[in-house]
Amino acid sequence: MPPATSPADAPAADSAWPRLGQQTQDGRTWAVAGGRWTTLAMSSRPAWEALAKSLSALPPEADRAWDLRPIEQLDHIGAQLLWDHWRHEWPATLELLPQHRAVLDQVAQFTVATPDEPAKSLPDRVREFAHHGPRAMVVMRDFVGLIGQLALDLCTLARAPHRAPWRDFSGHLYQFGATALHITALVGLLIGVVLAYLISQQLRQYGAETFVVNILGLSLIRELGPVLAAVLIAGRSGSAITAQIGVMRVTEELDAMRVMGIPHGFRLVMPRVLALAIAMPLISLWTSMAALAGGMLAANAALDISPSYFLSALPRAVPISNVWLATAKSAVFGVLIALIGCYFGMKVKPNTESLGRGTTSSVVTSITAVILVDALFAVLFKGIGFRG
Rank of each mutant, 00 (worst) to 15 (best):
Pro3Phe: 10
Pro3Ile: 05
Pro3Leu: 10
Ala4Glu: 07
Pro7Trp: 05
Asp9Glu: 14
Ala12His: 09
Asp14Tyr: 05
Ser15Glu: 15
Pro18Leu: 02
Gly21Glu: 01
Gln25Trp: 15
Gly35Glu: 05
Trp37Leu: 00
Leu40Val: 06
Met42Glu: 07
Glu49Val: 03
Trp66Glu: 08
Asp67Glu: 08
Glu72His: 02
Asp75Gly: 03
His76Tyr: 12
Ile77His: 09
Ala79Val: 08
Trp83Asp: 08
Asp84Phe: 09
His85Lys: 06
Arg87Met: 08
His88Lys: 00
Glu89Lys: 14
Trp90Val: 03
Ala92Val: 10
Ala102Cys: 12
Gln106Ser: 15
Phe110Ala: 01
Thr111Gly: 06
Glu117Ile: 11
Ala119Glu: 15
Ser121Gln: 06
Pro123Arg: 03
Asp124Trp: 14
Val126Trp: 10
Arg127Trp: 12
Glu128Tyr: 11
Arg135Leu: 09
Val138Ser: 06
Val138Thr: 05
Val139Pro: 04
Arg141Gln: 08
Val144Met: 12
Leu146Ile: 10
Gln149Lys: 11
Leu150Arg: 02
Leu152Cys: 12
Asp153Arg: 00
Asp153Ser: 13
Leu154Tyr: 02
Leu157Ala: 04
Leu157Met: 05
Arg159Thr: 00
Ala160Tyr: 14
Arg163Phe: 07
Gly177Glu: 01
Thr179Pro: 06
Leu181Gly: 02
Val187Leu: 05
Val187Trp: 01
Leu189Trp: 05
Leu190His: 07
Val193Asn: 02
Val193Leu: 12
Ser200Ile: 03
Gln201His: 13
Gln202Asn: 11
Ala208Arg: 08
Glu209Ile: 09
Thr210Val: 09
Thr210Ser: 14
Gly217Ile: 00
Ser219Phe: 14
Glu223Cys: 06
Val227Gly: 01
Ala230Arg: 02
Leu232Ala: 07
Ile233Gln: 04
Ile233Asn: 09
Arg249Asn: 14
Ala256Gln: 12
Met257Phe: 13
Arg258Gln: 14
His264Lys: 12
Phe266Gln: 00
Val273Ile: 15
Leu274Ser: 04
Leu276Asp: 00
Ala277Val: 04
Ile278Asn: 10
Pro281His: 15
Pro281Thr: 03
Ser288Pro: 13
Met296Asp: 10
Ala298Gln: 13
Ala301Asp: 12
Ala302Ser: 12
Leu303Gln: 03
Asp304Val: 12
Ile305Val: 15
Ile305Leu: 15
Ile305Phe: 08
Ser306Arg: 13
Ser308Ala: 13
Phe310Lys: 06
Leu311Thr: 15
Asn322Leu: 07
Gly334Trp: 04
Tyr343Met: 13
Phe344Trp: 09
Val348Ser: 00
Ser354Met: 05
Thr359Asn: 02
Val363Leu: 03
Ser366Ile: 06
Val370His: 04
Val370Lys: 05
Ala375Glu: 07
Ala378Glu: 00
Phe381Pro: 00
Gly385Val: 01
Gly388Trp: 06
